[in-house]
Design a protein around this nucleic acid. Structure first.
Lengths: 251, 251
DNA sequence: GACCTTAAGTGAACTTAGTTAGGCTACGAG
DNA sequence: CTCGTAGCCTAACTAAGTTCACTTAAGGTC
């Protein structure tokens, strides 16, 4: 790698236009004012690597840099450290997840509240399956920037909010919930996470259908399969109120 | 740390009997044939450090070695690498968890099947709360030794088995389950894991009582609060059979 | 008691990975 | 053409996992 004859810091390099030796891809320096482009490219690279490898074990700063076609320290121009980089990538992914759940919800709009909830749940499972590398990190990585004002504003709230709204619609349409609204939403959300998380830990290759079936079972248990005229969900309890205040976000 | 005047490899050290400079503890070399003692001491040190720090972020081989009062390479006399070391410590902890659940179950033996189940669930939550450092690792760390015969024999099966038996007893005593047995057990187990796992991720300091209340809510949803004469649980479905075959252990 | 074998452990060093320090260099305004 | 500076780079430091070759002393043998 190191050419023997080199003496000083700023080494002469041939015009960089063509034929980089290392990565075939070679990335030209951005134009002035376009420095932010690198930021996006780095995030893309992180996502690509996590997708390709389905794991974060080999996700090193140097690997990311190589994927982009840039030197490792250049990443620090846009991210304070690795934690911030990974967090940024994950925040993007969280929004993707939330959006896929919204899309599934919309698509099932005609089929009624209960089907919409199941569509969201299925979307969650599918996402976890197709983005295993990201998913593992999403609940492992701790939020950097211990900004006390933001504590508890984990982006996963986007997910639980979607579920809570879908549950509320079910109750409105006459499918009673087995638990108070906020508690039901929290139980469903963490239950889903537990399901896919354990799948990942066990490293067993359970087919997707099994996972969604299990998730559906959880839904069936939380929201009645039959419409009634009764109350939409049990009266709020102490726990329900605590959850509403501390864990879930408010609209 | 390094004494300046030293020249060669085998350095003279004062008789080690008293007054180590670093960790007060200083550890005499084991007698012949007692080499295995170090293994146990290392495992103890790992557990102590995880307890003290409540996290694995600073769990380095050198830190473990220092805690034991030994040089880092000595750990490799008993563990092939860090992964194996951590896995060994976790396997111990899994058994502790299972045992605490069993103990809770026994203690509530007189109160009936449903109370025994709740006692097990509470023990699970308590364990996750009191052993946060271990708990995080338990579901994060992948099993080393990809021995294909052992795949799927994750020690967490001890946990799910205990839950399944408690659920079966509930059904036997006339508290019907909302899902087929194996599916109910899997849902409860992963649901519990999801609950505490999300608590850890969010880094919110929810009081223990809230967690156990949520867990109780899940139990209430899975196993009826009232006895009936009907069937103990719904007929086994395809999912239930799949779970029984692939994920849970058999007695 | 001197000698040898070997279990039990060492210190130094290699490697990989995160991160920092201190520049080059070419775009583009003047 | 010149010159400031945005946008990047090389070299190097540090921490941590791991390997290597070596030392030390326990305990058997003569």
């Amino acid at each position: 790698m190191a050419v023997p004859g080199r003496r000083h810091h700023g080494v002469y390099r041939e015009p960089v236009v063509k034929g980089r030796s290392s990565t075939g891809s070679g990335r030209p320096r951005s134009r002035r004012g376009q420095g932010e482009r690198l930021r996006a490219e780095v995030l893309d690279a992180v996502n690509r690597l996590l997708d390709d490898w389905g794991s974060d074990e080999r996700l090193t700063m140097r690997a990311v840099a190589k994927e982009v076609g840039v030197a490792a320290p250049s990443i620090y121009l846009h991210f304070a450290d690795k934690a911030e980089l990974v967090w940024a990538a994950l925040t993007d992914k969280y929004e993707q997840l939330a959006q896929q759940m919204r899309a599934a919800d919309q698509q099932a709009a005609a089929a009624g509240a209960r089907e919409r909830l199941r569509a969201q749940v299925a979307a969650y499972c599918r996402f976890a399956h197709e983005n295993a590398g990201h998913y593992r990190l999403m609940y492992e990585v701790r939020q950097p920037t211990a900004d006390p004002a933001r504590i508890g504003h984990h982006p996963s709230r986007l997910v639980s909010r979607g579920l809570r709204r879908a549950l509320a619609r079910c109750a409105d349409e006459g499918y009673p919930l087995a638990l108070p609204l906020h508690q039901a939403a929290h139980t469903l959300w963490t239950g889903l996470h537990g399901l896919v998380s354990v799948q990942h830990s066990l490293a067993i290759n359970t087919p997707m259908t099994t996972i969604t079936d299990l998730a559906d079972g959880l839904v069936d248990v939380l929201v009645s399969t039959e419409r009634t005229a009764g109350p939409g969900y049990p009266q709020s309890t102490e726990v329900d109120r605590l959850i509403a205040e501390t864990v879930l976000d408010h609209d």
